[in-house]
Structure formats: C-alpha cells, structure tokens
Amino acid sequence: MIRASRYMVLLYASMAGVPAMIFLRVVFGIFGMASLQDAAGFLAGVGLVVFGIVGFVEVYAHPQNKHIEQVNEEAGEAHVLSPGAGRDTIVMSISRFAGGGKGIEMKDYRVKVSKFTTVLEALLMIKETQDSTLSVRYSCRMGICGSCGVVVNGKPSLACELNAEKTAVDGCVKVEQMRAHPLLKDLVTDFDDFFAKHKAIRPGLYRKDGKEKYEAKKEYKQSQEELNRFLPYSYCIMCGLCLDACPISNSNAEFLGPQALSQAYRYYADSRDQDGKKRLFDVDALKGIWGCEFAGACSHVCPKGVDPASAIQLLKNEAAKSILENGE
C-alpha cells in the first residue's frame, strides 16, 4: 500500500530542508554576508533538489498500479463461483438525523443480504421496504461518481464499494454520516464548502492560446512520462472522504484540504498547463500546503488511490525550490 519511505524522504525535504534554508538565509542576511548567503542558499538548494529527485523517483516508482494493489489487499479470499451461500440477516446500525432540534440517533435495521449485497444496496433495501424516510446520496453504484461517501464501521468509505456481509463485525454494519461536511439529513452532508475549496485552487487547464483551446484545430502532444506526472492525481472523484479523514480539515475550516490541494498539484504537474507559477503562489500559504501536518489519513481512505498527501508534499517541494531558484 502506501510506503512510508516515500513520505519520509519528502518529509525531510519539506520539514528539514526548508527551515534550514530559511535559517541560513536569515542568519547570513543579518550579518550582511551576501556571498555567504548565496552559497548557503546554493547548498540548501542542492540538498532540496536531491531530496526532491529521490522523492519523485519514490513516488513515481509505481504510480499506475497503486490503487490496484490496494484493491487486491482488501478483496480477501472471496470467490463468487463457490456454491452454497444462503441469505443471512445482518443488522445495519444507521445514524439518523432529521433536524428540527433533535440530534443524531443511531437506529438499527435487520436486513437479509446475499453474499453480493453492497452496503449501499443494504441501505436502499431498508429505504424500499422498511423506512422510506431514510436519506442517502448515491448514483452510479460503481465507485466512479463519488456520491455515496459515508463512515462505515468508523472508516470513511464509499458505500457502493463495500460488501455488506464482509464488512459486518459481529453481524453488524455501522453506517454514519461524514463529519467534515455539514450534516443535512441522515447520511447526507452538504458539499457547498467542499466545492468552494475545489474552485478556489482554480482547477481547469490554463492556456495562453485561448482561441485554439476552444476551436481545437491542433493537438497538444504529451509524452507518457509527462502524462504519468499528473495521472495518479487525476483520479479524484470528489467524494470528500479525504477531507473527512483529515485531522486538520476537521479542526481548521480555513484549510483548503487534501482534495483541493491534490487537484492543485494535478493541474500544476500537467505539461499542457501554462499557469504553474501562479498555481504555486496560490497554495503557498498556511491555509494551503503548509497547513498540512502530514497525517497521511487522506491517502489512507482515498478509494481511488489518489494519494493527496504525496501531492501536498510535492507542492511543498516545488514551492521551496521556486523560492530558492527565483529568490521569491
């Protein structure tokens, strides 16, 4: 799954290299030793670049297969074609909330499931046959639309991707609403703020050839290497699970959060984009990349293997490099 070494290298670069560089520059700056300041900057720069290169190599060693590996681990030993599975009853313990002064309460429902029933299907079975007032957001039921993010047995998950039987602990599946998004009803949360943060990083390719962009007479060429640089970060389905897992997002409403920042990197790293400098400048802030304290929870829960934590560290690296190279 997620390799610690990859992060550690980047962590050193972002946490040790940058303060060291700033320290050296400030100290030598105070003493007016301009040439030493340049030398120190140069040395720190070289160090960072080395860290950066190692980090890149580590991150891109297996970008394509990352989420597949993750999937395999979770799939377990299930084998559908083996006969003999009956219909089992499980308990779905669901957090209910309808506003009107009443708080959240957990309510249990007994549901008969087959070995193929997903948590989402179990929720919809309750709605169709037991309690039609239950609300959950869903659409594609195949893990690509990003609607059905909920907390299942304590872990932020897509309800459509979990098998109900296999998820049950002692015959019970606990389903709660995400907490980093304001609660609307039952399992449905409000995404306005989440979308606003996504918008704030100015997603979308920026091009100077505005006319060509829309008339599309030519083709922008892109090598496989250039594609690989941003591809893993373009899998984001905007389900909001990473935000729910992030301790910073949960305690600091200002923080742009792992989803938006990973998308800032996705566009920054796309060779077709022509707005890199400004993108970096925009996220180079405490509510941006420097707000991340590197818990890595976002990458752990991402159902599509996007790995926002590495995107943020890569942005920190780029921001530090650009300061060293350009002075500002």
């Binding site: 979308g204 390719l205 091009r207 060509e212 962009k213 829309y214 599309a216 007479k217 030519k218 083709e219 922008y220 060429k221 892109q222 090598s223 496989q224 594609l227 941003f230 591809l231 373009s234 566009y267 796309d270 077709r272 984009d273």
Partner: peptide, 18 residues
C-alpha cells in the same frame, strides 16, 4: 482535441499523439 485542450489525460502513443 477540445477535450485534450481542457485537460483529459488521453492515453498516448510514443510520439505523444492520442
């Protein structure tokens, strides 16, 4: 090509074409 211009990560050939 329009979708190339707005950011779709098309699979590419060795020479960079779609």
């Amino acid at each position: 090509k329009f979708f190339d211009h707005i950011g779709v990560p098309w699979n590419r050939e060795r020479d960079g074409r779609i």
